[in-house]
Each structure stands twice: as C-alpha cells, then as structure tokens.
C-alpha cells in the first residue's frame, strides 16, 4: 500500500479515506511508465476532461425477454469520485455497468461518457471510449489459458501499441507490485486463490491507465480480511491514477471503506442517493436492511 503513494509522489489524505478529486499536487508528477500527470486533473496522456461529470445516464431502460431489469434509471458520475451503487442481487447492477461500456445495448435512454453518447459511437469511437474505462468483472475474467504475465500484457499490447519489451516488462512489474503480487508473474490463474485473482484482475485493468473504473462486486465471495485489502486497493487506485469510479456492491464494509457517494438501486430505479452519513442515519426499512 505504501509504495503506491510514494511512486505517485502524492500526499495521501490519510490511511482511511482520501479526499476525492481535489488533491492538490505540486508541480508535475511522473507516474511510472510514460504518462505525465500535470496539475490535479486525472489526465492520462494528453486527453483532457472537459465535463464536470464523466458519466451521465438518463432514463436508462433495459430488459431481457419480458423481464424489465432497469426502468428509468438516471445517475451521474462526477470527476474523481468513488460512487457506490448499492442493490440486492439481481437488481440489474451488472446490467447497468455493462450498458455503460456497451457490452449490452440499452432499450431506451442515453448514456454519455465524457459527453459522448455511447450508443452513437462508431467502432473506432467505441474502442477509444473503452480504452479510457477499466472494467473489473465480477468473476475476475482472467484468461485461464494464459499466465499472469500474459494476462497483464494482453490489454497493454493491444491498447497501447508500440511499447518496447522493456516498457512492457516494467509496466507489468509495476502494476503487479501495486496489488502486492510481484511473485506470481509466471503462475497460471488456476494456481491463485480467489483474492489473488481479483487482485491480478485489478492489475490487468489498471495497466492501461484508465480514467474511469467500473468495479463489479469487487469484494463478493472474499473473506473479510481480503475484502478490506481490495477496498483499500480501490482507494489507492483512486488516489494514484486519479480515476473516477463506479463500485457495485452489496458488501457494506466495502461501501464504508470506499464510498464518496452512494446510490441505491431497487426495482430498476434509483431508490435513494446520498452520502454515507445520510444512509447510516436513515430509518428507511430497505436501507436499514443493508446498513445493519
């Protein structure tokens, strides 16, 4: 954990909850690799962020054969924040973030990422948009016919074309160190534990310096200690890579550790939106069932 903030050369706001979005950074900071971050905006390379909110979803509707999963769902993700989307299993949380990255096509409504309507993107535009978004799959989705190293190199070679062998090796070592798994480089995914897989998967996602992170139930199925580790990794990614994130979960410890803002989804709609304090002090029965 420590080496993260040191590599980035940033002052973390504290071990628990770094303040999102507005960490003042003195001068230029060179994040390992060749991406230069200037000032306090999450700028990867020379792409600039113009909008205040990076993702804007309006009246999203999505169903599967007569089963309406999302109806009239609207939300915004602000620059630099960790937004937690809370909801019980089967409430369509995964469907929601899959629509954002257009793995699924919505039936109705618009989704804007950096101001661009996702459903109107060309193939090239879609590829460019996806390069800016990191997606941590619920199951980890590590390629099980490849070693950890090959898994990490796969997106790197395909998204950041033209890197030298040395640069690739350095980048792989860096992200793997960041998730604390430097020694697993040549292992197969089947040799790793569930928590290690999640972490390798996280490393594979951050290796291409995404500006937005979408986490699909990052702590589900892990023991409390490993869950805490993943939660603090999520915070580390936020501070180090200056990402804006949507974290989907029903694990309340993960919510407490990572959330800047919470949106609760119920029956395909936004049920309540607010800060962690508001949710903590709420007397609503459904919210209480999560915040015991």
């Amino acid at each position: 954990m420590e080496n993260l903030t040191h590599i980035a050369g940033m002052e973390s706001a504290g071990p628990n909850k770094p303040v999102a979005g507005n960490n003042p950074v003195a001068g230029n900071v060179i994040v390992a690799g060749n991406v230069i971050v200037t000032g306090n905006k999450p700028v990867a390379g020379n792409k600039t962020v113009k909008t205040e909110h990076v993702i804007e979803i309006d009246n999203l509707e999505k169903g599967f054969n007569n089963n309406l999963v999302l109806k009239n769902l609207s939300l915004k993700l602000y620059n630099g924040e960790n937004l937690v989307v809370l909801g019980k299993s089967g409430s369509g949380k995964s469907v929601l973030i899959k629509c954002i990255i257009r793995l699924l096509l919505p039936d109705q409504g618009t989704i804007r990422v950096f101001g661009q309507n996702v459903n109107e993107l060309t193939t090239k535009g879609l590829a460019e948009m996806r390069e800016k978004i990191g997606f941590l799959f619920q199951s980890g989705a590590l390629y099980d016919s490849m070693t950890v190293r090959e898994n990490l190199e796969f997106p790197l070679k395909r998204i950041k074309k033209g890197l030298t062998r040395k640069e690739i090796d350095e980048k792989v070592a860096e992200v793997l160190d960041n998730v604390g798994l430097g020694e697993t480089l040549n292992k197969m995914p089947s040799e790793l534990s569930g928590g290690m897989r999640k972490r390798v998967s996280l490393a594979r996602t951050i290796i291409v310096d995404p500006m937005i992170m979408l986490y699909d139930e990052p702590t589900t199925g892990l023991d409390p200690v490993t869950s805490d580790e993943i939660s603090s990794l999520i915070n580390d990614v936020q501070t180090k890579y200056k990402t804006s994130s949507i974290i989907i979960t029903h694990d309340i410890e993960c919510v407490r550790a990572t959330a800047d803002r919470i949106i609760m989804v119920q029956d395909g709609e936004v049920y309540k939106e607010g800060s962690i304090e508001e949710f903590n002090s709420s007397t609503d029965a459904i919210i209480r069932s999560f915040f015991k």
Binding site: L103, E131, A141
Partner: peptide, 20 residues
C-alpha cells in the same frame, strides 16, 4: 467447452473491452 467457459466467466467480454 473452452469458448463456453470463456463466455460464462466473462472472459469474452473482457477481451472485447480491451480492444480485441
């Protein structure tokens, strides 16, 4: 079996989002 399990464990989706 190979592609089926890749599909079920979202590996095909993961490939798609990494520009492949």
């Amino acid at each position: 079996a190979e592609l089926g399990s890749m599909k079920v464990t979202e590996q095909i989706d993961a490939m798609e989002v990494s520009s492949t």
